[in-house]
Design a protein around this nucleic acid. Structure first.
Lengths: 244, 244
DNA sequence: CGTGATTTTGAGAAGTATCAAGAGGAGTGG
DNA sequence: CCACTCCTCTTGATACTTCTCAAAATCACG
């Protein structure tokens, strides 16, 4: 379901997220160029192989980009939170399927309109370009992690990312909501669901975290988690400042 | 070592690579905006943490982007061949170290000049933007592979990529030169050097490949290799057509 | 309060890493 | 041209992590 964009819309305002892409959202689009679409959990925004007609920017909720292979292996490439851009495929079709993890809404930016606009508006262009290169930076970290870390390090890294980007505000101990299910976490980290589960248990036993519910994690020992997560990394890409 | 760019230079012409980024290279730059630098094997083009002042485009040879972690783990993010762009970091500093794998040369494009130019020249902008999104597409495949495949599948995927992008022309059976050493392959595929070596041996024993020298691979059974490489994938990103 | 989906736990198998040693190649100097 | 050395690559034995298969426990929801 799609509605025309309206600059006073709260969903639209959420687009002006924490990542300096405000320019994109603040721009006034012609009605045909941009709109906001709402999705229920699990719904598909764009499918792998579909003609890549639009770029997207998350307004509300969490989205994921997925690649499912012929033999059923599944890799989640990224979780997108408000302010994040996705669908920046170079080819004529999407490389990834984009789906809603939970109920949310996403700004749909017509690709051709974006291109035209990028050609005319340097600010806008820089913002979209930063979206693309930022995705690249995230993917660098993601890959280093997937390629070189133990299960525990991967999960610690994941929890740290969630805490930095989406901690429930004003909570002590710091708490994050796991919007996605275990299978999603596993497919994001390149592990099996059983290993993810076991690793959660192990962290709980060691007193690093508490799991009041399966979908809620309290970070009891942030330093320990950080040490694990940073074992092979320094400043993570999601909080490195963007510059032009 | 750096020399001013010259459109009749053969190294410069090589930049107009097979990937539709010709526009970038064909553009006439002011002397201060672009130049070509030559590097010996192993030399560093840009270091992780250095101020990100330039974009690069490979003119000749092979380059690699590397991330080495505190505790010595090493991940190679990409190998860049003539026509490929690198250094597209969003932040104020490079996230990756860029090094020459063998002797080669690379076009250095001043970042600020690029930005200015991108603002004025839509063609140029589209080309650079495609460079960034194309890198993203490659990284999607790379990650799916690293996260979800066996050692044999990874190596098959790697060999297929080399064959598609850099096979020695007019050879039967199709032959590729391994410019990089085993450690580089291991760090690219997220494996250890021993596993890479064993997997080469195993493929040799099965008659899929021959290794006339350690650095040269003859692909005796392309179909078998392809089946392995494609076990979890379809058209690989490096030959998906780019469109605007 | 069932019923199906998700998550956890368990036992065993498989694949890759690790540690250690040996073989092969390239370059240097006698 | 050969011997020596260094470096890369290969091979071997073993250990460890993670995966796989199976079942039990928990959760979500009508």
């Amino acid at each position: 379901m799609t509605v025309a964009i309206n600059p006073s819309d709260s969903a639209f305002k959420a687009v002006c997220g924490p990542f300096g892409i405000a320019e994109v959202a603040n721009s006034r689009f012609a009605h045909s160029d941009a709109s906001v679409a709402h999705y229920a959990a699990g719904e598909e925004v764009a499918g792998e192989g579909d003609p890549a007609e639009n770029y997207f920017m998350v307004a509300k909720g969490v989205f994921r980009s997925v690649k499912v292979t012929r033999d059923g292996r599944r890799q989640i490439f990224a979780f997108y939170m408000p302010g994040d851009m996705c669908g920046l495929e170079p080819g004529p079709t999407y490389d990834l399927t984009i789906e809603a993890v939970n109920a949310g809404s996403i700004a749909v930016l017509s690709r051709t309109a974006c291109r035209t606009r990028m050609a005319r508006d340097p600010q806008f262009n820089a913002a979209v370009f930063d979206g693309a290169t930022r995705a690249l930076a995230l993917s660098i970290d993601h890959m280093t992690m997937v390629g070189r870390s133990s299960a525990e390090e991967r999960l610690a890294w994941f929890l740290k990312m969630l805490r930095d980007r989406a901690a429930i505000p004003g909570r002590e101990p710091p708490t994050v909501e796991l919007v996605m299910q275990r299978q999603d976490i596993a497919d994001y980290l390149g592990l099996t669901i059983e290993t993810v589960s076991r690793t959660f248990t192990h962290m709980k036993e060691r007193g690093f975290i508490a799991l009041p519910t399966t979908r809620r994690v309290e970070i009891l020992n942030p330093k320990a988690l950080e040490r694990l997560a940073a074992a092979d990394r320094d400043a993570p890409a999601w909080d490195r400042r963007i510059c032009a």
